[in-house]
Amino acid sequence: MTDLRTTMVSLATGVTLNVALAGNPAHPPIILLHGFPESHRTWRHQIPALAREHFVIAPDQRGYACSSKPEGVENYAADKIAADLFALADALAIDRFTLAGHDWGGAIAWMAALREPKRVARLVIINAPHPQVFQRKLFDDPGQRRASQYIRFFRETDLDRVPDKSALEQFLFSLFGEHLQVRVPPEEKAIYLEQWSQPGALTAMLNWYRATPMVVPAIGEDLPRPAWIDGPFPLQPQPTLVIWGMKDRGLLPCLVDGLETLIPDYSFVAIRDAGHFAPWERPHAVTEALLDWLAARPA
C-alpha cells in the first residue's frame, strides 16, 4: 500500500491543504514539510521508501501549489503555519507522529516540535537552521550574513505584484542557479512554473519571509543585538536527526555549530556532495540516513 495519492484536506485553521499520502494508515505516521519554493514534491524520492514502514503525510503548505493562499502577510506567521500542521494531524486522526522538515519546513518543524513535545515523537531536520543559532550567526558570522541577503530582497521585492511570467521564471530559477548553484532537472521546470503561476502563489510564498521576525542585518549594518540569542534556550525534547548538504550556499555549514548543546539526543549526518536541496540532489544518501536513523530510534 505504497501508492502515492493526493487529497484536499480542510483544516480547522480555515485553510485547505493539498496533501500527498502514501503507505498504510495503520503504520507509524510521519509528516514531511517542504520549504521554499517547492511543494510536497521535495520528498518525491523519500516517500516510496518511507511508505514501506510508515504512513506518510506530505502537505503542500499554505501558500504553495494547490493549497489555500490567504491574503495578508499576517497569515504567514510561523505560529499559524504550525497550527496547520497540528490541525492536519487532527483531521487525519493522528495524535503522535514523527516530523521532518526541509528549509522553511524545517523552521516550522523546530518550533512545532518544541511547543508540542507530546505530539512530535521524533524530529528530522534537513538544511534548516535552529532559530537561535541562525539569528546569532546573522549577527556574528560575516559569511552567513552575506549569504542571507536574499531574505532582505524577498521581503522587499514587488516582483510578485507584476504579472510578468518571464520575470517570474527568471527570478525563481536564479535562486537555484545563481545563488545556490543547483541545477533544476529539465523535467521539473514545467512543474515548478505551473505551481508558481497559481493565482496569488508567488506573493503567498514570499509572505513567509515577510512575516518572520528574524532580523537580517545588511552588510556592514550595526543593529541592536536581540537579547534572546545569547541567553538560555529550551532544549529540544525529541530525538533529533539533522541532515546537512554541506555545499549549501545559502545556509552555510556553520549553522550546525553548537547544536549538540541544544539537543540532548542529537544525531548528525553530513552529505558532502549535496547543496541546499539535498532530498532531490542526493536522494539516496538522504533516504538512507532517514531510514537508518528511524530504525535506530523507534517511535
Rank of each mutant, 00 (worst) to 15 (best):
L206G: 03
S174D: 11
A109K: 00
A109N: 02
A87G: 02
L294P: 04
M214W: 05
L193R: 11
V120F: 02
L21R: 08
K137M: 15
E38P: 04
G245V: 03
F171P: 01
R96Q: 15
R44C: 13
P199N: 08
R52C: 12
S148M: 10
D60N: 07
A65T: 03
K189E: 12
W196K: 00
Q198C: 07
F139I: 07
Q61R: 15
A218H: 10
P48A: 15
G72E: 14
E74F: 07
I151C: 05
A218W: 09
A87Y: 03
D164A: 14
I94D: 04
T6G: 10
Y64F: 15
F233S: 10
P213Q: 11
Q132A: 06
E169A: 08
I47V: 15
D84S: 01
Q135T: 07
P129T: 00
A83T: 00
E288P: 00
R210P: 07
V120I: 04
D90K: 08
R210M: 07
R152Q: 10
W280Y: 13
R155K: 13
P142G: 04
I47S: 06
I151Q: 08
H54L: 01
A201E: 04
N18H: 15
P239F: 04
W104Q: 00
V133Q: 07
I271M: 04
L32I: 02
Q144D: 12
R136A: 09
Q149R: 12
A121H: 09
H179C: 01
R146P: 10
E260C: 14
P279E: 08
Q198D: 06
S267V: 10
A87T: 03
I271G: 01
G23T: 03
L251H: 14
E188A: 10
E53H: 08
F139M: 09
W208G: 00
A113S: 04
P70R: 09
M111S: 09
R225I: 09
D265G: 05
G35L: 01
I125V: 12
N75L: 08
V286T: 12
L159E: 11
S166H: 11
A91V: 09
Y209D: 01
A147L: 11
S267H: 12
W104E: 01
L4G: 12
V184F: 11
M214Y: 03
A77S: 12
W104H: 00
V269W: 07
A274I: 07
G23C: 02
F97I: 03
I57H: 08
L4T: 13
Y76S: 07
R183F: 11
E156Q: 13
R297W: 10
I125S: 00
W43I: 00
R183G: 09
K165P: 09
A58E: 06
P163S: 08
I57M: 07
D265I: 09
L168C: 06
A107L: 14
E156T: 14
F176P: 05
L33P: 04
K69H: 10
A51N: 04
D248F: 00
P185N: 10
R44T: 11
L290R: 02
L21Q: 07
D60T: 04
I57L: 08
L290C: 04
S197K: 05
L235F: 10
G72C: 08
A285R: 09
R161C: 08
M111Q: 12
G200K: 02
T287C: 09
H179F: 06
R115A: 15
F97Y: 06
Y192S: 08
L223M: 13
F171V: 01
D292R: 15
E260P: 13
D3E: 15
